[in-house]
Every structure is written in structure tokens, then in C-alpha cells.
Nucleic acid binder design. Structure first.
Lengths: 201, 201
DNA sequence: GTTGTAATTGAGCATTCGTTCAAAAAGGAG
DNA sequence: CTCCTTTTTGAACGAATGCTCAATTACAAC
């Protein structure tokens, strides 16, 4: 056989997520990537093909991790709606926390806004991911409706997009560096929107 | 005297807004700027100082125009709240419209997300503009509260930020290229959020 | 050890980046 | 027309960009 790889693909990707999430696609140079991954250009290109390829894989890894985070919040609650509300409050809280993450805003949204008119391939990927997230949240809300948590008459798909827009808005507001209490209030107010669609009991 | 400037500063800025709004700061090269403004580098630098300076002025011009748009929507209604609701629906509508603007998302938010960790000066400017917008909307909502349109107990500042987050979310969703009807529904649902804070009569 | 293979290295590629500045061009005043 | 001032031009700069590849290194098998 031969020499074994010094770099773990997964940990390298995690580091790439950190840099790209923080600085975006255009804002991250290969020089910075080399430093962040502690890899030389040759190794990076042998492993990921190109800056585009690395970014694409990093974005996918980010999305996967994001999905796991939502699942964690939901696990803590019997009620789906309360789980989602906790998720919103959790985002608001982490937005107040300094240095909790490379950036407060969502990397998928950052990518979509940055690349929609400059890099169609990335924009398509971001759009696909957002559609997939919409799909899985829609299933949750539909489930909640069937369970009787939400009023029967709601359009779960439509409420999903309202919720998705809340998350986008909340995390973008996070980038404003507002007072933590203000972010918590905002998270509460967004959680309260869902109450308007709940069944009373 | 001497030769007079061939370029009108204001129309040049409008063209710059168009390019920067579409492609962002990093996504717009000087070559593209020269083409968009139909100006040679020397003239651009003599007029605006630098790419940064041009972007900064363009962002300010964009914000000013955005403020005028909101005022137009408000003029059409006796009720402030209904004016704001119409503003939300208007955004949703224009997001569905193809080629209505260089980009569906807000240039200020795009700038904030792009520059928050790469270009502090731009991020600061974007933050200042967002704070100013928050201020003027807060004055509107406080006015609406005093007029009795909104329940007396509301925190107008807090509701302002919820509204601002709606706008950010709505316009970011616009970048997803969803069906126009879907965007209209989303705008309606966001407008309906405000109903929850209105006085009944 | 020696050999064979695969991973890593980093100097250096062509290109593009934002920017400068000496020269050319375009008027108004005399 | 001749000056004088101001604006415009575009070639060219140094630095940075994404990327390549021949040489080197490190390990497993023998």
C-alpha cells in the first residue's frame, strides 16, 4: 500500500464551514482556506476539486448539521408546535450570544443572497436546500395539524413558508448585533405568531 | 472656465445601485462598474474616490429611495397600519414580478450579510441605515398606537423589530423564485400578523 | 533495507483585482 | 485663434486571485 491521508475529510469540511459561513464565498480566498484547513493547495484540490466544490460540500454539511439541530429541539417536546417555538427562541438566544458561531445569519441565506446573480450553481444548491427544509417542516406542521395541535383549516405548506421567513428574518436581524434581550423578545414574538394558528384547550 | 462634467453624479449613482444591488460588493468588479456607469476608471476615482466610496454612496442612495417607496404606500391610506400592510403586500407582489428590480432581496440586508465579517465599515453603514429605518417605523407605530389603531399596551419599538424582521424574511424568500401566488400569500400572512396587534371595532 | 504507491508540498502559472497618473480632449474667457 | 482650467482617457502598476504539477515525503509490503 502507500501513505495514508493526513487530513480527515470530515474535520476539514467542518473547518471550511466555519470560514465560508463567516466570510461567504467571495470573501474567502484560497489563501485563507489553506490556513483554515491547514492544507496546501495541492491537497485541497486533490480532495475537493475546486473552491466551488469545497464550498458546495461545506454548504451541504452545514445544512445537514442544521437539520440535526432542529431535531434536537423537537426531541425535547411532546408538542411539535412547542418544539418549533423553542427552536425559534433558541435561535434568538444564540444570536445574542457573542462568538457562539462564525456568523449569526444562516449560511444558506447568506449564500443565496450572495450568489443569486453571480453564481447560479451555488444559488441553485441553496434553493434546493431551502426547498428540502420547507418540505421537512411542512411534514412536521401537517403532522401537528393531524394531531390536533393546529386548527384543521390551516394550509400547512403556507404556514411553513411563514415560519421559514421568520427564521430568515430572525437570523438576519441577529447580524445587527442588537441587545440580547431584544433578540429574545423578537424570538418570543415570532413564537407567538404560531400561537395564532394553534387550537385552544 | 473649463470643460463641464459629461456624467451626472446622480444618474451614475443610480446605475451603480443597479449593479451593486444585483451582484453585491465583492461580486461587482471595477471592470463591470466601468461598463455599467459608462465611465473610465480615472473618472470614477475622481468622482467617488474608490470602489468603497462608490458602494457607500450607492447604498445610501438605495436607502433613500427605499424610504420614499414606503412613504408612497403610506400616503394611500388613512390608517398607518393599513399602509404598512399594503407595503408588505406590495413587496410580496414585486418579488413575484420578474425583472422588476436588480434583485428581490433588500440591498441593505445583502450588504449586511456579505460584509459583517469581511468589511466592517460597510457593515457599520448597513447597521446604521437599519437602525434609522427602525427609528422611523417606530415613530409610525407609536403614532398608530396613540391614534388608537393599535392596542395601548403594545411595545411599539418591539413590534417595529418584528415588522422589520418580516420585511427581511419576505424579501429573502423572494430570492427563492417561488410562485407569485405563494409570495402574495406570504405577504398576506405577514400583514395578518399586524392584525393581532390592532384594536377591534 | 529496498521498492512501490499514494499523499503532500509550494513555487509559480495566467489572470484578474483595485488603483494611479501622465497625456489627450473639451470647452469658456480673452 | 490662443490660453487656461477641468474632465476624460486608458495603458500600466503591484498585489491578489484561483489553480497546477513536478518534486518530495511518508508509509506499507516485501
Amino acid at each position: 500500500m502507500a501513505r495514508h491521508a493526513r487530513y480527515d475529510r470530515k474535520t476539514a469540511l467542518e473547518k471550511a464551514v466555519g470560514l465560508f459561513w463567516e466570510k461567504g464565498y467571495h470573501g474567502s480566498s484560497m489563501k485563507q482556506i489553506e490556513q483554515a484547513l491547514d492544507m496546501r493547495p495541492g491537497s485541497i484540490y486533490a480532495t475537493f476539486g475546486s473552491k466551488d466544490g469545497l464550498f458546495s460540500e461545506a454548504l451541504a454539511a452545514y445544512a445537514e448539521q442544521g437539520g440535526r439541530e432542529l431535531a434536537v429541539h423537537l426531541k425535547g417536546f411532546d408538542s411539535i408546535v412547542e418544539g418549533l417555538q423553542d427552536y425559534l427562541r433558541g435561535i434568538a438566544c444564540s444570536c445574542g450570544d457573542e462568538n457562539a458561531a462564525p456568523s449569526r445569519a444562516c449560511m444558506i441565506v447568506k449564500t443565496l443572497l450572495e450568489s443569486s446573480n453571480t453564481h447560479p450553481a451555488l444559488a441553485d444548491q441553496a434553493n434546493s436546500i431551502l426547498a428540502a427544509i420547507e418540505q421537512s417542516i411542512a411534514e412536521l406542521l401537517e403532522q401537528a395539524r393531524v394531531k390536533g395541535e393546529l386548527v384543521q383549516s390551516i394550509d400547512s405548506r403556507r404556514l411553513t413558508r411563514l415560519l421559514q421567513a421568520q427564521i430568515m428574518g430572525l437570523r438576519s436581524m441577529g447580524e445587527r448585533n442588537l441587545d440580547p434581550q431584544i433578540m429574545r423578545d423578537l424570538g418570543d414574538d415570532m413564537a407567538a405568531i404560531l400561537d395564532g394558528y394553534r387550537t385552544q384547550h
